[in-house]
Each structure stands twice: as structure tokens, then as C-alpha cells.
Design a protein around this nucleic acid. Structure first.
Length: 471
RNA sequence: GCUCCCUUCGUCUAGUGGCCCAGGACACUGCCCUCUCAAGGCGGGAACACGAGUUCGAGUCUCGUAGGGAGCACCA
């Protein structure tokens, strides 16, 4: 049978890091096994679901290039189907109507808690089936449908990540599967969907482990084949706490804005809770070939932005600069840089990729080549421009640069000639020029820094620096 | 409270009874390279939560303890 996995977020916010990893694992597992990956939007909570969130999730999935074979499906469009299945369960005596108000249920829970018991529904309407009983209550505003959970025995399943898990049915109560507002609840809708969509592997966050036994009972009641389950451990923040937007970037698209590459994020995520020996770097093809959901670790892990940054720089350094150009230009624009003049973004990438961890940083540092020097670093000026050899260096460089072929290598030759002529070390040559080009003491190699400025602008900046040096 | 789950360097992890006085990576750090900053090369410190047991032998198996997490909704 074809392997089919699904990612089923509820659109109550953007796609966060944990969700992205779940989506990645679902996607990888289906890809490796030649199966299909389905996207489903779980929007039955009409209070909290928004169209903007749906769009944000779709955008993030697209940016990560986690393409779905089917979907997105929307649960709100499947209401009739849920109703039909629920009615069948009621007709078969596997579910029943109940009429407690929310207040009554709340009181029931509190009473149970007070006695030190697990809060459970008491099954008051479970066997009320005398003739006419339910017809008389057809219009009761509190009417819900509850699933008749088996009261004996236990549910056992082999979780692909956690291993064998056994649950006593006596721990489970008769959960609501249809609310009084006419919408299905999560535990019911997922099961109906996963059956209808032919899902064979349910891969999801570990906060769902506790729901699984209930869902398995519903599968049984529906006479459906129970899929495989794999529950992924949580991703915690640096302090080992739950990820929260107050203290961390949690949205995938926030990471984009911070200058991370989609592949770096995917590579980081695939290694968080999974490994293949000592390998750290995985191409998409390698991930697909090597990933196995059964090898995922059981314990929660912490999100380490520094390691992500290292991976990001790795891809900045090793990817074809041309393939990075579009994303980099997006960042240049966000940084308010006018790229109609100035160096080709690809050249800037080559100059800066060894020196920054993110594209955002790169865009910041690129400003010096797209706009005049905004401010001079006093220390740099004092140290490298206001000294006895600076004017001579600048002068000599200026005249040689004026007629030199405008490529990094010839420019490098020119610098060497200046050094030879003035009998000065490279430090005495490069630093004044660097300050002239950037106003600071830090930049890529001097020939590249000059090259990126362009001949006209470079000569102009040298003139300005000479003026400053002369005081 | 109840049920379920988890525990190897600061962090991500390798490890499926002897190859482990525990390997790799990030971070930190020393040296080298060097026109600045990086990048790179070569080094360094740093962990099996604790206690019993099984075994000739335990990070690896069993049981307990401690610590952590999740869930217990007409939310997903």
C-alpha cells in the first residue's frame, strides 16, 4: 500500500518552528518511501482560525519548498461528512446524545478533582435509550454527541518513536465528538479525515500521545484500519522552556526576515531529534534517502540559534552565489537599499559570505557599496588616515587605479605596486584605503572592497579621504 | 491529584553488553595563517542524573529514586 502522510496545522497563527519540523518529517517519510504527502487545514475552531493564518502557513510551506501532493483540504468544507459519520455511529449505538450544560460538566470535573480522581464524564446519558427520550430533547441547546468508549480492556499501540504504549480503557471517558454548535471536535474530525484521506502514517507532535488511544477506539468503532503513529518530541527554547513568541523567534517567516536560508533551516531541523552517524550536512536528496521516522529520538531538544547560524553560513559559503541572489535581493530591498546603481548582488555575496552568518547581516554590510559613506569612524580616521604615509599611499593608489583593469586581481596587483614603490608593508597600504572606501577598519579583502565600489566611486572616495588626511 | 512519556559534554547528538578511562558537531578556548574582520588548518577543556540488581563485563538489560515534560475541554 502507498504510504501517505499528512501535515495538519490549525490556522490560529503562523507556521512555527515545531510545526515546520513536523511538516518536514512527514514530507521526508513520504518521499523516502515513494509515498504521498497531504496538507490539511484543521479549521474547525471557527473562533480562532483566520484566513490570514492559512495564508501564512501556505507561504511558509512554499518558502521551505515542502510541496504537498494533495490539498490543502479544509475541515470546514467537510462538515456534512462528519455529520454523516457521527449519525452512523449513533444509529449503530456506538455514540449517543447527551445534554449536560458546560456548567454541569465543569462541576463534574471539579468534583472528581476534589476527590483526587481524574476528571471524567460520568456517562449519565450513556444508556438512556427508552423510546422517545431523545426525540423530546431534539432541540436542547446543550445537545452533543458523545462517543461510547469501551469500558473494559486496554488500547495498545506501537509508536514508531516512543515504542509500545498501553492505555487502560478505564482511564478514558466518553468524549464529545460533536459539539452543541454543530461542529465536530478535533479527535473525531482527525479520525474521519485520516480514514477518508487514506493516511497510513500519522506523524505529529508528542502532545497528541494522550489522544491516540481515544482515536484508536474510534477507528475500531468505524471498522477502519488503524494507521501507524509516530509522536515527535517537543522543541524547547535555549533555556529548556517551551518556545514562546515573547522570548524567541518562533515563526518560520521570522527566520526568513532574520536572514536564514530555507535549506539551512531544514538541515538544522532534520538534525534536531534525528541523526545519521556523525553527518551534519544534508542535501535535500540525502535527507530523503537517509531519514527514517523510526530513528527519531524520544527526548525533547533545545533550539540553538548559534548552530543554525553556523549551518546558514555553511550554505552561504558553499551554495552557488547565483542561486542565493534572489533571496539576497529581497533582503537588500528590505534594508532600504537602492540597487539600481552599485555592484552586482552576486559579487557582494562572494565578498561577504565568509564574514556573516545571515543574509540580513550581509545586506547591512552591503550598504557601503550602494550609498555614500554615511559616517566616519573617528578611531579609524585617527589611526589610518591621520598618519605620515596615508596621503602618499592614497595618492599612489589613485593614479594607478585610474588606469587599471577593473577586476579584483588587477587591483590586487596595483596594491602590490604601491607597497613596493613606497616600501611599506601591506598593513600600511590596505588600512588607509579601507578607511577611504568604507569609513571603517573592517571590510572584505582590500582589492575586493575597492572593486565593489566601482572605479568612479573608488576614486571619489580616495579624494575625499585625502582631503580628510590633510585635515 | 491522576495517566502517559523523557534523562550521554553548556547545546545537538553517536553509541543496540566487551571496539568507550565514551566519538562527532555547535559554542568556548590556545596556536598557525593574515591587509582588517572573517573563513580555514592544527590543538584543548567539557558528559553516561542517582542508587541497587543481572552479568566475567553495563552508557547499553531490570527495578527503584530524583528531576523534567505532556495530557486530563463542547481547543487543536
Amino acid at each position: 500500500m502507498t504510504v501517505r502522510t499528512r501535515f495538519a496545522p490549525s490556522p490560529t497563527g503562523f507556521l512555527h518552528i515545531g510545526g515546520a519540523r513536523t511538516a518536514l518529517y512527514c514530507w521526508l517519510e513520504s518521499r523516502r518511501r515513494g509515498g504521498e504527502f497531504i496538507l490539511r487545514i484543521e479549521d474547525t475552531d471557527r473562533e480562532r482560525s483566520t484566513d490570514a493564518a492559512v495564508q501564512a502557513i501556505l507561504d511558509a510551506m512554499h518558502w521551505l519548498d515542502l510541496d504537498a501532493d494533495e490539498g490543502p483540504f479544509y475541515q470546514t468544507q467537510r462538515l456534512a461528512r462528519y455529520k454523516q459519520v457521527a449519525d452512523e455511529l449513533v444509529a449503530a449505538g456506538k455514540a449517543y446524545y447527551a445534554y449536560e450544560s458546560k456548567e454541569e460538566i465543569e462541576a463534574m470535573r471539579e468534583a472528581a478533582m476534589a476527590k483526587g480522581e481524574k476528571p471524567r464524564y460520568n456517562g449519565y446519558y450513556r444508556d438512556r435509550n427508552e423510546p422517545g427520550f431523545h426525540e423530546a430533547r431534539r432541540e436542547d441547546p446543550n445537545r452533543v454527541i458523545r462517543f461510547r468508549n469501551p469500558s473494559e480492556g486496554s488500547v495498545v499501540f506501537d509508536d514508531k518513536v516512543k515504542g509500545r504504549i498501553e492505555w487502560a480503557n478505564s482511564e478514558l471517558d466518553d468524549l464529545v465528538i460533536f459539539r452543541s454548535d454543530g461542529w465536530p471536535t478535533y479527535n473525531f474530525a482527525v479520525v474521519v479525515d485520516d480514514i477518508d484521506m487514506g493516511i497510513t502514517e500519522v506523524i505529529r507532535g508528542d502532545d497528541h500521545v494522550n489522544n491516540t488511544p481515544r482515536q484508536i477506539n474510534i477507528y475500531h468503532a468505524l471498522g477502519a484500519k488503524v494507521p501507524e503513529f509516530a509522536h515527535l518530541p517537543m522543541i524547547l527554547d535555549k533555556e529548556g522552556k517551551k518556545l514562546s513568541k515573547r522570548t524567541n523567534s518562533v515563526s518560520v517567516m521570522e527566520y526568513r526576515a532574520d536572514g536564514f536560508l530555507p535549506h539551512a533551516i531544514l538541515n538544522y531541523l532534520v538534525r534536531l531529534g534525528w541523526s545519521h552517524g556523525d553527518q551534519e550536512i544534508f542535501s535535500r536528496e540525502e535527507m530523503i534517502a537517509l531519514f527514517d521516522i523510526a530513528d527519531v529520538n524520544k527526548a525533547a531538544s533545545r533550539f540553538d540559534t548559534e548552530k543554525l547560524a553556523w549551518l546558514n553560513q555553511h550554505y552561504l559559503k558553499t551554495d552557488d552565489p547565483q542561486s542565493l541572489a534572489a533571496e539576497f535581493e529581497w533582503h537588500l530591498q528590505r534594508a532600504g537599499i537602492d540597487t539600481s546603481h552599485g555592484p552586482a548582488p552576486v559579487d557582494v555575496i562572494v565578498a561577504l559570505r565568509d564574514r556573516v552568518h545571515t543574509l540580513k547581516e550581509m545586506a547591512e554590510r552591503a550598504k557601503i557599496w550602494y550609498a555614500p559613506i554615511a559616517e566616519w569612524d573617528d578611531k579609524a580616521v585617527a589611526k589610518h588616515l591621520k598618519n605620515d604615509s596615508a596621503v602618499a599611499v592614497l595618492d599612489a593608489a589613485k593614479s594607478l587605479l585610474a588606469g587599471c583593469e577593473w577586476q579584483p586581481e588587477p587591483i590586487h596587483q596595483v596594491i602590490g605596486q604601491v607597497a613596493a614603490k613606497l616600501e611599506l608593508g601591506m598593513g600600511k597600504i590596505a588600512q588607509p584605503l579601507r578607511v577611504a572606501m568604507t569609513g571603517t577598519q573592517v571590510s572584505p579583502s582590500i582589492e575586493y572592497t575597492i572593486y565593489l565600489a566601482g572605479r568612479d566611486e573608488a576614486l571619489k572616495r580616495i579624494d575625499a579621504a585625502i582631503a580628510i588626511a590633510r585635515g
